[in-house]
Design a protein around this nucleic acid. Structure first.
Length: 469
RNA sequence: GGUCCCAUCGUCUAACGGUUAGGACACCAGGUUUUCAUCCUGGCAAUAGGAGUUCGAUUCUCCUUGGGAUCACCA
């Protein structure tokens, strides 16, 4: 049975890097009809951020990364919050003590710092085991509990990085239990993964360097090794370090608020560092479940390219049926659209759909359909051809347009006919005449095809805007 | 610095040891009788460097260079 997990600590929001790890773990579970588990690793109470747990859950839900078991979704192996599992860790720690694999750390912080300085002075890496006390006191919970490591070389298989060998020197007596009564991640996650029957450990690359210690612990605990897969980091836009909250990594929920579609986000995030080997560029969630494989995940880090995300988002917007899109843009309409009726809004949306990169673009693209636009002379003076016209000439053309259109039937076809005839009677080029009409009726930098725009705007509004110049 | 990992167009990437090194984003040009967008056509653009193995290396090995991760009573 395949069981994967996503185990964030509730210390903030989720950015694309974290979401990708969650998504891949989810895909691995779903494609095998297994379970995906959410677990909160809240053993560092100092770093915990209030509200973060709810925020993480909302982020996962917003992208449709549904977990089968989690803090708010009881399952067979709960609870799924580490701070509620202290008794379990205690039992496992006792096993280690009994088998002589763990001991109490009697040193003060100052003493340890002195060891550290000594190692540094000798230009050697600090290893606690070199200062291992000969007769450690009995562990009473007030001291840290350390793992008694046997330095040896390990090799293991990583689904993404392949066969990795580690150096014996780096195995050290790391802390299993902190003096504050909470276990460390290093200890707790291994216990939990075992207790929760997790088959695949999928996490960020930063844990690779700790693998020797984990492997030593699995061994001491007599546990079977899960499958490991370490994700390369997502790099910031400059490509010089892993994407982090400090250098502008955005909360995924902010992308939703900014009008990005969940399915676009999912497709984009999945294809950062993964592809199916064909030339397919975008994927639905179901396609990802069918086609994803850890072995095709790139070893090197991928940069976050916002331009590409924008393209993917536009692509998914265009794929949506009008009905679906209408359902998605509910909160993105311009203020003035509130009183407009549904049928009208749908027609407006149909004209805007191809132009939308994010849903947030909607007001800028459509407001003149709902309220009188603000006049912006620069649209005329900034237009090379129109700037050459005198005010009288402009008025003449608009008057002619008004007359011609006032006698027209009000369908896109009839309007187009009228406009074409107008081209002949005025002897103007479309670049001049149509641009002028377009600008005066919308006062927008760009707009949909002129006849469609006017047809939807309505005869009265069109004629009055032509006259108002 | 020690340890581990990585390296194809600007970016994301494809290529059982044999391809004119392919696709996409971005950019540029043209087309779809106005603009913007969509759509279509075309263009620009890469195997970090050096040895070795081989009839033949993007691909295998080694070195160099460059980059990243990690060295906490954080996860």
């Amino acid at each position: 049975m395949i069981r994967t997990r996503f185990a964030p600590s509730p210390t903030g929001f989720l950015h694309v890097g974290g979401i990708r790890t969650a998504l891949f773990a989810y895909l691995v579970a779903k494609q095998a009809n297994g379970q995906f588990v959410l677990r909160f690793e809240d053993t560092d109470k100092k770093r915990e951020v209030p509200g973060s747990a709810e925020h993480l859950i909302a982020s996962l839900k917003s992208l449709g990364i549904d977990y089968d078991e989690g803090p708010d979704k009881p399952g067979e192996y709960g609870p799924y919050i580490q701070s509620e599992r202290i008794d379990t860790y205690k039992q496992w720690a006792q096993k280690l003590i009994d088998s002589g694999c763990a001991y109490a750390d009697p040193y003060t912080a100052e003493e340890i710092q002195a060891f550290r300085d000594k190692s540094q002075a000798a230009k050697r890496a600090f290893l606690f085991r070199e200062y291992r006390p000969e007769n450690p006191p009995e562990w009473d919970g007030s001291q840290p509990l350390r793992f008694k490591a046997e330095p040896k070389s390990y090799s293991y298989h990583d689904e993404i990085f392949g066969d990795v060998t580690t150096n014996a020197e780096v195995v050290d007596d790391f802390i299993l239990y902190k003096s504050d009564g909470y276990p460390t991640y290093n200890f707790a996650h291994i216990v939990d993964d075992a207790e929760m029957h997790i088959s695949h450990v999928i996490r960020g690359q930063e844990f690779i360097s700790s693998m020797p210690n984990y492997l030593a612990l699995y061994e001491a605990l007599g546990l079977e090794l899960p499958v490991f897969a370490h994700m390369p980091h997502i790099l910031n836009e400059q490509g010089n370090k892993k994407l982090g909250k400090r250098d502008g990594a955005k909360d995924v929920l902010d992308y939703i608020r900014d009008g990005y579609l969940p399915e676009a986000l999912v497709s984009f995030i999945a294809t950062m560092g993964w592809n199916d080997g064909t030339e397919q560029e975008v994927f639905t969630k179901q396609e990802l479940i069918d086609k994803f494989s850890l072995s095709r995940v790139q070893k090197s880090g991928a940069r976050f390219d916002e331009k590409r995300l924008l393209w993917v988002n536009g692509h998914f917007i265009r794929e949506l049926s009008l009905e679906e899109l209408y359902g998605r843009v509910e909160f993105f309409w311009p203020e003035a659209a509130k009183k407009a009726d549904e049928a009208y809004k749908k027609q407006v949306l149909a004209l805007a759909q191809d132009r939308l990169k994010t849903l947030k673009d909607l007001p800028g693209l459509t407001s003149y359909f709902f309220e009188e636009p603000t006049r912006n002379e620069e649209l005329i003076s900034g237009n090379k051809q129109l700037a050459k016209l005198s005010t009288d000439e402009i008025h003449g053309l608009l008057e002619a347009a008004h007359d011609a259109l006032s006698q027209s039937e009000w369908t896109p076809e009839a309007i187009q006919d009228a406009l074409n005839k107008l081209l002949e009677t005025t002897g103007q080029k479309p670049g001049i005449l149509f641009s002028l009409i377009r600008i005066v009726t919308t006062w927008a930098a760009f707009s949909p095809q002129l006849n469609d725009t006017l047809a939807l705007l309505g005869k009265d509004k069109t004629l009055s805007r032509l006259q108002s110049f």
